[in-house]
Design a protein around this nucleic acid. Sequence first.
DNA 1: ATGAAAGCGCTAACAT
DNA 2: ATGTTAGCGCTTTCAT
Lengths: 334, 334
Amino acid sequence: MKKNITIVEVAEKAGVSKTTISRYLNGKFEFMSQDSKEKIARVIEELGYRPNNLARSLKSKRSRIIGVIVSDIGSPFSSILLKGISDCCERYGYGVLITNTNDNPKKERDYILSMLDQRVEGIIVNTTGQNDDFLRQIGKGNVPLILADRAIEEKMFDTIRSADYPITIKVAEHLKQRGFTRVGWFVEPLNNGARILRHKAYVAACKEVLHIEPQVYIMEDKSSLAVEKLVQQFIDANGSERKAIYTANGVVTLHIVKALQRMGIHCPDDLGLCGFNNWNWTELVGGGLTVVAQPSYKIGREAVKRMMFRIHRNHNAAPRLIELECELIVRHST
Amino acid sequence: MKKNITIVEVAEKAGVSKTTISRYLNGKFEFMSQDSKEKIARVIEELGYRPNNLARSLKSKRSRIIGVIVSDIGSPFSSILLKGISDCCERYGYGVLITNTNDNPKKERDYILSMLDQRVEGIIVNTTGQNDDFLRQIGKGNVPLILADRAIEEKMFDTIRSADYPITIKVAEHLKQRGFTRVGWFVEPLNNGARILRHKAYVAACKEVLHIEPQVYIMEDKSSLAVEKLVQQFIDANGSERKAIYTANGVVTLHIVKALQRMGIHCPDDLGLCGFNNWNWTELVGGGLTVVAQPSYKIGREAVKRMMFRIHRNHNAAPRLIELECELIVRHST
DNA sequence: ATGAAAGCGCTAACAT
DNA sequence: ATGTTAGCGCTTTCAT
């Protein structure tokens, strides 16, 4: 097990002090002789020296790592979000420490604390929605926290999410124009900020555009039978009206599509369907699904940009809500 | 900006030395009075003290972080793999530093180096396949490297992947039994270990089971037109035989399904189709796709287990190739 | 333009 | 059972 090369050896071999090496490493060439510079470069090359980032971070208090906590790393939303985040972090020379909570609030708390222990410079969290008090507490510390997709009630953190309201209005207009007179909204339990805001948007769209009573169907249980029952319930409740389902997210969309297939219900003739999230398979099923495309990649990218702003420009900027535009992709199912 | 609490303050307030606090933090209670123990616990609680992991790692040379490099974080394979890795790391008390190369070999090299700078204790890499020399170099160092899914020629690293050979034989038997007399294999360029091994398996299956000449179709270009052309080529080349397509991975499957839909080709009557990877949408399209289910989650989990073995038990164990069983899920398309 | 020296917050001999 | 001390590998005043 060969010893690691440190700054000391480099200094000795280059015939200068540690300080000069450190300056070199940090790009402070301004008051450094061309000679030293070249010699150092050569020695580093020869030795294959690489600085120890733990030591650098410990001393400088800048780890150049940001933490990311997602609620379900297996979902396409998360992977695209993460892609946006990592791509953007890379441009800023930051690394990304990622953890996955599986929507478990306790894990979320533990991970946040352990990321702070690692001295991450900021945390981006797609919160489970059950940690508002804890998050507030963390917010008082000096490591910026930014919410991705899921907001919390209080306007305390920068939040980057999709602009659900305008797109939901647009969806309603589209459905109305296609002759649908009843629109049911299918969602998982309303226990996080994204779902709550989308719910508001749906209710507003019912009032303002569709002029109907909202019909919210909450999937407490995602088993095949339970979902089919819920769909049947919606159908039975609306007699001979032209009915359409609007879903709250990609997971719900998937469950609904499966249920409709099993039930032998065809879109758009038997029932309209507008999904949320333009996942790669949505164009493949049933001749193509009409969907709202959420800007997941951009959400990631903007979260990082905002984080960099906070870290490098203004630690105490007022929290901002950044809502990014969604796109309605009309296909065969409506 | 309030000062961070350090071990020194805790020691003072508890009336003991730093050493004792350090012992407490590391669970070395064996020679510690019940009294000290309780007092320390209380002080830590009161102060809300949390140890600085950078300092711990720097000193102890154990960061309790492992690095993971995936080639495409946006793909379901990667997300499930990552889920397996993170879940398992958590059980061992390890954090995960994740980066994404987008199949760019240069990025892969840079990320590996920067992970080493962070003093990760091990690296799991789903390599682009274009860095064999570099990886060998890294392999000589003392940070274990484990390959996930994509092997390299030389048997130098632990490698965890799916057992492609037996499942491919099984696929061939299934297709034969269903009356398919020609099977074409569709793949991206053969530039990584997974594809190369799958290619071998396909060729073997052709000889041993199907008794036909292999027909390999390489998708150099994934545009709609190019893919359609390739499919048409396969069809034209095999006249009135019963033809089936077997794909090398989920991305290829997706492209083929799209092409078939556009071309108005129906499975299994016009053409059989067996995909690779049981992504959530495969059961939805065309009445359900027959697929090989790759054990992505398990690959992640086993990679971590092997990593822990290497780190904690035997740094110099002989490299092992661990191949995990795949499952054939027969649906409507064959 | 360069260096000496004092830490960053912790761990681990080596005492006692 | 507990404390003293010397670092881990770097950055950063403050000199010169």
